[in-house]
Each structure stands twice: as structure tokens, then as C-alpha cells.
Design a binder for these strands. Structure first.
Lengths: 139, 139
DNA sequence: GTATCTGCAAAACATTTGCAATTCT
DNA sequence: AGAATTGCAAATGTTTTGCAGATAC
């Protein structure tokens, strides 16, 4: 049976992206921790494992992944970009207390928005997000 | 009959905010041009009228307005914050060609999202936006 | 051996902060 | 005069760029 590191490596190859050590670890990290990390979160988490890692590499790599369609950038706060390895449409909920971003899947979301936007608009992407208090942070 | 400048001035007073010349012009600009401007768009548009205007004042003023609930910041691109003087829930559509952000009102939006998020989450705000090509930019 | 990839250092940008000058009441 | 507001200049923080060394094919 293949390890998930091997799977990540093959996923990259299928996108014609060379599976360098850094790239594989970055993608693996974002896929397994489903925490929608920022650049800094990725950097500080991987530093123990890859002491030579630089932020420039993370910037380069995430740009590569986003352009390839492997990841999507999530824009909830204007001062932090988060990244999600799940590119299917779903809702992001950010807790105003703990700061965590969690996924909410609503079956009928798929075309709710696009089907309601007036004709004449050519919709490429739709994004829904909410802010509030998550179940763990209720008193 | 009152000019819209006078109306803006009174709106500010109703929020206990002193209607200084700069504040009135900034709010008036965002309200009348419904272009969801960035800080820079506001700055360069008002510079002719207020040559001494500084960006710091715009930063200060917009923070004041957002905290007071007079405006909402719109986060579509991570590298630019736009501001909207309409704080009722509605959809923003950003055209990938001309870059304009337009409003789309869908009557049933009001509670579509909040009513579908699993119970346990306490939803304070919901935001929907889409990206694509606007009617004017179709070939 | 040639392409690609990584990571340092510097550059470019956007936003915030401290403070002095100005304006309003 | 006293309090609030403005705007300059400096500080901060984040992202991008240029490039030299390392790595992979």
C-alpha cells in the first residue's frame, strides 16, 4: 500500500509538476491538516522537518499550485490568505473566537448562486463564506 | 431641498461622527460612485478637490466608518480591499476583464446561507461573491 | 551539461504609528 | 483654550524580484 507521501508525489506528476521534496511536503501538509493554513502556518510547521526551508519557496510553490488548480486561495480576511487543497465549491466558516476556518458542505450549493445571477453574467467562480462562533466556542 | 452633501453630513452626525470636510467628501464619494472603490481609488479621485488630502486620513476615516457600521469592507482579492456604503447583504460580482465590482441583489439571499449552516454555528455575517465576465465585457 | 528549483538578500508595496500642526467649537 | 482631526515622516510587515548556488534529469 502506498503512503500518502507517495500519493501526493504522483498527484504532482499528473499535473506535470516535478515532485521536489519541498513541494511534496507542502502539498501533503495542506492536504492532511485540513486547517486552511496561511503561508506562515505552513512555514513554521514545516521548518522542523526542513530546516533550510525558506518562505520564498512557499510563495513560489503555492503560486504554482494555485495556477495549476491544485489549491484555491481563500480570502476571508484581507490581511491573511489561506489555502485549501479542496477545490470543490463549499462554504468556509471562520470563527471569530478561535480563528479556525472550517468547511461546511451544503449539497445544493453547487449551482445555487450561479443559477440566480442574472443572465448576461458569465460566472466562473463562486465563493461563500460566513463568520461567527463555531460550536466549540459557544459557552 | 437638501443637497446630497448635506444629507451625508447629517448621516454622519446621526452616528455621532463629526462631519469634517474630508469625512463628508469621502463618504459622499463612496455613496455616489457605486464603484466599490479601493483606498487608492478614493485618494486619487478626491485629490483634485482636496489637494492637501493624505492617505493616512483615508485610512483613518474608513476604519472609523467600518467600525461605526456605515460601510463594509469587501474582500474579493487578497491584495485589494474595497469599500461599500451599502451594508445590506448582497452579492458582489467582480469582472475578470474590466475589474469592476457590481452588486447583484437576490431577494431570497437574506437567509439562504445562514439557514443552511448546521446548528451549533452562530452565524454573524455571511458573504457571497462571484467572479467571471460581466455583460459589458462579453464579445 | 542543461534545465529547473531553492533560498538568500534586497526591493517594492501596503498599512500602521507617533507626533506636530491645524482646525473646530 | 481645549479637544478632535489631519497629514507628514518613519516604522512595520508582507509579498515580489534578482540572482547565485544546489539539485535533478
Amino acid at each position: 500500500m502506498k503512503t500518502s507521501i507517495q500519493k501526493v508525489s504522483e498527484q504532482l506528476k499528473s499535473y506535470q509538476i516535478r515532485p521536489s521534496f519541498q513541494r511534496v511536503r507542502i502539498l501533503h501538509y495542506v492536504q492532511t491538516e485540513k486547517n486552511h493554513p496561511t503561508i506562515d502556518m505552513i512555514y513554521s510547521s514545516l521548518l522542523a522537518e526542513i530546516p533550510s526551508l525558506s518562505k520564498t519557496t512557499i510563495y513560489n510553490t503555492l503560486k504554482l499550485f494555485v495556477d495549476a488548480g491544485i489549491m484555491q486561495p481563500i480570502t476571508i480576511e484581507n490581511h491573511e490568505i489561506r489555502y485549501d487543497a479542496d477545490t470543490t465549491p463549499h462554504i468556509h466558516f471562520k470563527c471569530i473566537d478561535c480563528g479556525e476556518v472550517t468547511d461546511v458542505f451544503i449539497p445544493e450549493q453547487q449551482d445555487w448562486l450561479s443559477s440566480r445571477i442574472p443572465s448576461g453574467y458569465d460566472v466562473h467562480e463562486q465563493h461563500l463564506y460566513a463568520r461567527g462562533r463555531c460550536p466549540e466556542c459557544q459557552l
